[in-house]
Write a protein that binds this DNA or RNA. Sequence first.
DNA 1: TTGTACGCGTTATCAT
DNA 2: ATGATAACGCGTACAA
Lengths: 325, 325
Amino acid sequence: MDINTIATMAGVSRATVSRYLNDGYVSEEKAERIAEVIRQTGYVPSRQAQTLRTGKTDVVGVIIPKINSASIARTVAGLSEVLNGAGYQILLANTSNVAKTEVDYLRLFSRTGSVDGIILSATMLTHKHIAALESLTVPYVILGQRLEGHRCVFYDDYHAERDITLLALRSGERPAFIGVTDEEAAAGHASHQGFLADCQERGIEPLAEEQADFSIESGYLACERLLEDHPDVDTIVCATDRIAAGAVVCLREYGHRIPEDVQVTGLGDSDLAKVVSPTLTTVNHHYKSSGAEAARMLLDGLGKVQDSAQQVCMTYELYARNSTR
Amino acid sequence: MDINTIATMAGVSRATVSRYLNDGYVSEEKAERIAEVIRQTGYVPSRQAQTLRTGKTDVVGVIIPKINSASIARTVAGLSEVLNGAGYQILLANTSNVAKTEVDYLRLFSRTGSVDGIILSATMLTHKHIAALESLTVPYVILGQRLEGHRCVFYDDYHAERDITLLALRSGERPAFIGVTDEEAAAGHASHQGFLADCQERGIEPLAEEQADFSIESGYLACERLLEDHPDVDTIVCATDRIAAGAVVCLREYGHRIPEDVQVTGLGDSDLAKVVSPTLTTVNHHYKSSGAEAARMLLDGLGKVQDSAQQVCMTYELYARNSTR
DNA sequence: TTGTACGCGTTATCAT
DNA sequence: ATGATAACGCGTACAA
């Protein structure tokens, strides 16, 4: 069932069928004959052949560190809405948080010409990432990290954590921090620095800086260590909502009142923040919008739209809820 | 930079290069020459041309109702692990919960020959779905719904809800249900029926059956309506954890003690269930494993493995926590 | 407006 | 073991 069959059945040349499908530069009469044959046969052009011929795939490659994450899911929802709306499909590459895999996918997508563009949601940007990015032959957007001279959408974790720390330090005097590895530029390094900056500005020495991963459990455990080493802690600033949720559960189990005895803050405004008791003071990161923004930026690179900035720092909103005084 | 270039540079025919890349049926000497040229140029075969020629894409289409959902994210994580491990990439189609779009994607994926197989995670299976499925030319697996005679992986929401209702009715006498539309076969209809079956068996007439969507807010609102109409309710069975979480928040705000005054149950064992206070009695649905199972099933259909069942009903685990007596 | 002829980059067949 | 040649299905100059 190829274009030749259709052409023969309609009694025209296959070039005419092709034109009918694309330009539309065909006489009324033949157009109708072709339309009829296509209707009967249910013919649809082969994507592969079109791609081979035109070089366009109408597919965008999206590389993410893990699908099983609320923030990333929201981001992909935003991407998906805009890209699908523009007629693109999404080829998803889940790297399971392995930096090398990210680079591999970057190469794979680009070299084989299987996508028209790439969106990279990376947790860290190594020199290998950058090298791979710069040798790409298709437009791309970096999501979640800032890289000068490249299209990117990123979050201002530094100022977000500053704002929230500032809020907590109004009535907190013995703060501690639970973060993730500093290798992660945004959620890791930036928010850590934000916390430290506020402490320093107020001349306060943090009691401790614990490290967790992105799970609720690790937040719980980090909080447990914290309570053991520093029972007098009165403020716990966390780099993510999940960590904060774990900390809240831990504090409750150990009989600490929140926020009377200990304040807790998160980052990300996930569902968890609204549901834990007390509700969590956190920052809303507009994840879905960031995905939409990145998608528009890519469409710009693809020549589909012309009005997007090259670098976008997402805004955020501070939600002061009941886990702080 | 195509296979011809490589052939010329290595002083062999392009057929030899192709053999080198595939069968490997090439003399030592020429193989080395070719290897060297490929190394220097960084040549990678064109996926598109390969696909056009062989008919294989090494891509699996995954159709999901929404990406921004904890259960689906976990499912896709499972899919992704197995499929990537088998050398397949995932083409993601997000339908935003529009049934028609699901059918459209089904057709799109199949007809254009852009995927080797399809996994459909559908919330409902209309006759159009079934017709579209049966006219597919590639193997497929249905995820989350049962359809006799088709490869599928589904959840036993009926018995899950029965078990959990049974647990709650041990010390509850005036139960109510908050569900989603019955059009959704699993989370909707099946769990509703499970609830009703237990009530009937014990000769209890449910106080009310409220309807919500999949959001926390809607759970909150449904609970509010419930309290208004039936202030004496002592057990609220919810079709999802998100709804249950909303109900818990609502009950707390209205000053009801959980579980002393009112019991609440969820379904799905999401993060929320562990964090909400009190922790939620719920059922763990092994979402990630279901994705992995569906992926293996598809690989079977693709002739890659040969040991999977055609129909799999996922097991579940009841977690009795603190929201029930 | 229509048809002819060619090429996109690969793999598979068939002699050699 | 190797190379010429024919597909795969389509779009598009170019000529008519």
